[in-house]
Structure formats: C-alpha cells, structure tokens
Amino acid sequence: MSRTAAPKANSTAAGGEGTPVTTLSLEARDRLYAECARAISEAGAERESLFLARLALLLFEQLGDEARCRAALAEALRDLPLPSLSAAPDVADTP
C-alpha cells in the first residue's frame, strides 16, 4: 500500500460487532500525532492527564461504540513503552 492511499475500511472493529473501521493514512496519522503532541505541550505537565482524559472522552463520544472504545483503551496500554531518556528532564536543569 502506498503512503498516499486512501483510508481503507476494515471489515470489523476490534471488539465491535462488525462495525466498519476507517484507517487513517500514514500522513494523516503523522499530522495528528504532531498536533496531539503540540496540544499536550500547550496543556502543560500539570494538566496533561486531564487534557488526555478529556480528549479521549470527546473521541469516544464521536465513535459512539463502548466496545470499540474499551478495545482502544486496551490497545493503547498494550506494550506501552517507558519514557525514553531523551524525554527525561536534564539533571542540570533541576534545582
């Protein structure tokens, strides 16, 4: 599949009862990932968890399928990596 291919519809959703799923193109996924990272930074460390929970609820409501939402939560947790050393604050910056 080329990187510019149109989104495809899968025959069933994970955990859904045959509900079609639209897959984002790689370019759209990259753009949304970057925009999400920017929004998380804008929310700030003290509001990051609240922002992410609110975003998830808004997206869940748009999806409108509790089973698919639960499947997405489980998938997000599966093989979740530990933060990389590059994401850790620099020791010299710590008071």
Rank of each mutant, 00 (worst) to 15 (best):
G64S: 03
A6W: 06
R68C: 10
D65L: 03
V91M: 12
L32M: 12
D65V: 04
E42L: 15
I40S: 15
C36E: 08
A53V: 04
A39W: 12
L85T: 08
L82K: 12
E35C: 02
G44C: 05
Y33Q: 06
C36G: 09
T19F: 06
E75K: 12
L50G: 07
A34G: 02
Y33D: 12
E61N: 03
S49C: 03
L26P: 06
A45R: 05
A6Q: 12
L58M: 10
A6F: 13
L57D: 07
R78L: 05
D79A: 07
E48F: 01
Q62P: 00
C36M: 11
D30S: 15
C69K: 08
C36W: 11
C36S: 07
C69Q: 09
S84E: 08
A6E: 14
L63K: 15
A67R: 07
P83G: 07
A67Y: 01
P7A: 12
G16S: 10
P81K: 01
L50E: 10
D93Y: 04
A87F: 05
E46M: 02
A34R: 14
A88M: 05
L26G: 09
G18A: 01
L26F: 10
S84I: 00
L77S: 08
D79T: 00
A71Q: 06
R31H: 11
L32Y: 15
S11K: 14
S84W: 02
L50Y: 11
D93Q: 13
A56M: 07
E75S: 09
P95Q: 05
G16R: 07
A92G: 03
A67L: 04
G18F: 02
L63G: 13
E17Q: 06
A5M: 14
S25T: 13
L55H: 09
P83V: 02
S11R: 14
A45C: 02
R78D: 07
D30Y: 14
A76I: 01
E27W: 05
C69A: 12
R29D: 02
D90T: 07
N10P: 04
M1H: 14
G64F: 08
C69W: 11
T22W: 13
T19P: 00
T19K: 10
R78W: 11
E75Q: 13
G15N: 01
M1N: 13
T22S: 06
G64N: 00
R31S: 13
A37Q: 12
R68I: 08
A72W: 08
P81G: 04
A14C: 06
S86F: 07
A9Q: 15
S11A: 06
L57C: 10
A39T: 09
A76G: 04
E48L: 01
G64K: 09
E48S: 06
P20T: 06
R54N: 04
S25E: 06
T19N: 07
A28T: 04
T22V: 08
L73D: 05
E42D: 13
G64P: 00
F60L: 00
P83K: 02
I40K: 15
R70S: 01
L26D: 15
L82M: 10
V21P: 03
